[in-house]
Write a protein that binds this DNA or RNA. Structure first.
Ligand code: FES
Ligand code: FES
Lengths: 146, 146
DNA sequence: TTTATAAAAGACCTATACGTCCTTTATTGA
DNA sequence: TCAATAAAGGACGTATAGGTCTTTTATAAA
């Protein structure tokens, strides 16, 4: 109902890289796909997209892999949404009638507006760093499928 | 991002029927599809589903069409969600990691939990009748595409 | 300068949400 | 009892999210 698989994989992927980065090493796709239990090739596609969008970096070849750059930890969740599914979704009507409009509100407008705005605010404020409890020994577990 | 097209069509469809019902007449698919500007055959499929689920009734043949039954106005939004997309969605993790679980929370769990619960509460409490402003002359406009 | 490694690129496949169409069944009034 | 009407049933088509595979490019070390 809420967010796409793609967004979830993207977030979990970059968080994994950030976490491992604290150990001072790069992360490769095989490791990520295995640890996070996500489809390797699909993850590759998403990681590549994030690199192209500049929120992290990668190097090819031996000892290569994904690593952080100066933007990564400052990246806001809303940017990840934008990259993976586009933000317009935050201002379309929940009934997909049109662009959500308080002048011509749909029957669910009142009940949804504050929730949606709260969510948007949350996603606009929170950075990846905010989500990174590097002191949590179970952090990896929290981003991996059970 | 939020709800499916199917849910939106279902809600708008039943609200239209309810609104017209106050005028004491039944509603037919052709009229609904035209007024709401939704694909006629797809709407048919959804209306038929709602009838089968018992939240409204229909009669075939001349002067037939859709009309309310004793359950319609008391129907809660959550039921409509259940019928059109299944409610499990309300207790799966937003990162689709698993069943959402406070004992093993994902990095977005804290920020999403209250929003999702608020939404669930909203959908569990609100009935179709609550959404029906039959005194609003622009009601139809509010459920039709611009 | 070759070989191994690992991401980038992009073609391709699959499942599902969304949508269309045709035939059947029930109802009505002439 | 027939013709017209309108929903029910169900097959079928399309678009997109999700997922797989193969080839190409960059990098590192021997
Ligand atoms: S108009 Fe529908 S959510 Fe605002
Ligand atoms: S565990 Fe992810 S939302 Fe609760």
């Amino acid at each position: 109902m809420f967010l796409s698989k793609t967004f979830g994989y993207a977030l979990r992927g970059v968080l994994y890289v950030a976490y491992i980065d604290k150990e001072g090493r790069k992360v490769q796709l095989d490791e990520m796909a295995e640890k996070l239990k996500v489809p390797r090739h699909f993850l590759a596609k998403i990681m590549k997209l994030m690199v192209k969008e500049g929120i992290m970096q990668s190097t090819k070849g031996p000892y290569g892999g994904f690593s952080l750059n100066e933007h990564t930890l400052k990246t806001k969740l809303i940017q990840l949404v934008r990259i993976t599914e586009g933000v317009e979704q935050f201002n379309t009507c929940v009934l997909s009638l049109r662009k959500c409009n308080s002048q011509n509100p749909c029957p669910l407008h009142q009940q949804m507006l504050e929730l949606r705005d709260a969510m948007l605010a949350e996603f606009s404020a929170k950075t990846l760093d905010d989500l990174l409890n590097s002191d949590d020994p179970d952090f990896i577990k929290s981003i991996a499928t059970a």
